[in-house]
């Protein structure tokens, strides 16, 4: 128990010190990692615990981002308004759309979410009086915490990751609670779950709404980080990237989401040093991960751990 605590403290110390020891663009990427972790968490909950493929996360990410942009730039409201408006709109939309489409199962549901994402993307482009279209909305101010302006990646990093840790705690609770148990029973055998009078629909809608909330938070954080939002950031491609995160990392584990977010953020950056071939290499890396590490990165890490840990009696792994 104590050694576990030591590991956690060590990890926290490294986490806190990191932005001060890395070059600025790496700190920048770490901020993106945090943002993608939050968005990926929602997808991971749906995928890992409900067996649902959600290809609409870019919609909620966009709603959060545009809400923050619109509230701060056009309406001159304080930043918190953007976060709240984005969250409320996203959760409401998720609830309204979720109720009918979550009745669908399997790939039908995946297609429905894809359709939702495509509709939202088309509207982001079309309603350019609201979103600025391809030109976008620029000049979004940096976040200001009681006078302390988060204008550098090394400062914003802490804010983003604290939000990320909070979301991870919420997700962890959801997963470990009775609700989580019911979700997994539903994923594995819906007839059995139904026989235990579990209200599947309500549960799935709940998780879908939580996923939308996380997506919106990530979007608002993104808006303040990039200071600029435009339609190209919220297309179906982005939803596919978000889907990759839990699948690469291992959808059922929360640290896996962080691993997946790191992969999706840092690997393209590292590969770009190799010239125009980097896009091909990224695709190959994805193939490599899925073929060689079928449980995702965390699955592989877990197996590595078990192999390296000395056999001790009385310990469960």
């Amino acid at each position: 128990m104590t050694s576990r605590l030591l590991w956690i403290v060590a990890a926290l110390v490294i986490w806190a010190a990191l932005p001060f020891f890395v070059p600025r663009n790496i700190a920048d990427l770490l901020v993106f990692t945090g943002i993608y972790t939050i968005a990926g968490l929602g997808i991971g909950l749906l995928l890992g615990h409900c067996g649902i493929v959600n290809l609409a996360q870019a919609t909620f990410y966009g709603l959060g981002a545009y809400s923050s942009a619109y509230c701060t730039v056009m309406l001159g409201l304080p930043s918190i308004a953007g976060f709240v408006v984005g969250a409320v709109i996203s959760m409401a939309l998720a609830y309204l759309i979720g109720r009918p489409i979550l009745r669908l199962t399997g790939y039908f549901l995946a297609l429905a979410t894809l359709a939702l994402g495509a509709i939202a993307s088309a509207l982001f482009f079309e309603w350019d009086w609201l979103t600025g279209g391809t030109l976008g909305i620029g000049g979004i101010p940096k976040l200001d915490l009681f006078g302390f302006v988060l204008d550098r990646p090394s400062r914003y990093y802490f804010f983003v990751w604290i939000v990320a840790f909070t979301c991870m705690a919420v997700a962890h609770n959801l997963v470990g609670s009775r609700t989580g148990l019911m979700l997994r029973s539903m994923r594995d055998s819906s007839t059995a779950a139904a026989s235990l009078s579990v209200d599947l629909q309500a549960l799935r809608t709940q998780v879908f709404v939580v996923c939308a909330l996380f997506g919106s938070l990530a979007g608002s954080l993104f808006a303040h980080h990039a200071s600029f939002v435009s339609t190209q950031s919220f297309t179906v491609d982005r939803s596919i990237s978000f889907l990759l995160i839990p699948v690469i990392g291992g959808a059922t584990s929360i640290p896996g989401i962080v691993a997946g977010a790191l992969f999706v953020t840092f690997l393209p950056e590292l590969l770009s040093k190799l010239g125009d071939i980097h896009q091909i290499l990224f695709g190959l890396a994805l193939v490599g991960v899925v073929v060689l590490l079928p449980d995702g990165l965390m699955g592989a890490y877990g197996r590595l751990q078990r192999r390296l840990a000395p056999r001790r009696s009385g310990h469960d792994h």
Binding site: V247, G283, L286, V287, V290, P294
Partner: peptide, 14 residues
């Protein structure tokens, strides 16, 4: 999901 990731990776590569 793994198979889906495989084909997505292949699509990007191609």
């Amino acid at each position: 999901d793994s198979f889906l990731l495989l084909t997505i990776g292949l699509a990007l590569t191609l």
